[in-house]
Amino acid sequence: MTTKTYAALLRGINVGGHKKVPMAELRTLLEGLGHGAVRTYLQSGQAVFASDHGDDESLAAELTGAVEKRFGFSVDVIVRDHSYLKAIVDTCPFPAAELEAKQLHVTYFSGPVDERRFAEIDRAACLPEEFRLGDRALYLYAPEGLGRSKLAEHLAKPRVNKGLIATTRNWNTVVKLVELTEQA
């Protein structure tokens, strides 16, 4: 099997003192699973690694199990390869170069999403905020940032994300993951 470079997105770690996963220990854990060129980005749950075994889903399941065994709690994990991450940046429906990074976010989903999942959201009531769907992803334009976003509140409701893992990253992190997976 060919070696590919991946990013692992761990949901909800190191937030408010909960689910602490030190990045050095995460790197060691990934290396112990047989992955190479392991690096982490920030403290909020991004790791980049090279692997010659598995695919997105099996690698995510492997890491989920290893984190639970090592740290004693469950963490949702999404794994995506470099080509997917690059396509997310390349197909952004918003003018990313003209926006501040805090205004643009991507929510990565563990599986496909379609418009029906979001039918209950009154998009007009949230303007000028907008969202658009991509490949297992949602692009959110929030001019005042995620913390003040009414639309983000609607998108985070359990019924919207039912049956899927969803984790959101700001545009700076989205772009940085492309760079890091390209270099590995």
Rank of each mutant, 00 (worst) to 15 (best):
Q103A: 12
S44N: 09
L99E: 11
G111C: 04
S51R: 00
G36C: 03
T91R: 10
V175Y: 10
S149V: 11
G34R: 03
L99D: 12
Q183G: 07
A50H: 03
L26K: 01
D55A: 15
L155I: 03
L127R: 12
K4R: 15
L155Y: 04
A8F: 06
Y108T: 04
L104P: 03
V48R: 00
A96F: 05
A152C: 05
W171R: 11
A137E: 14
I165N: 10
A47N: 00
G17Y: 10
Y139P: 04
G16N: 07
Y6R: 03
G147H: 06
A137F: 01
L29S: 03
S149F: 07
K102H: 13
Y84A: 02
L104W: 07
L30G: 02
L177C: 02
T5N: 13
E120P: 07
G16D: 11
E100M: 06
D90A: 14
G111D: 15
E182H: 13
G72Q: 08
G163W: 11
E31W: 02
A152S: 11
A101T: 09
V38D: 03
V38S: 03
R117I: 13
L42Q: 14
V75A: 13
L104S: 05
V15C: 08
R136G: 04
A50W: 04
D135H: 08
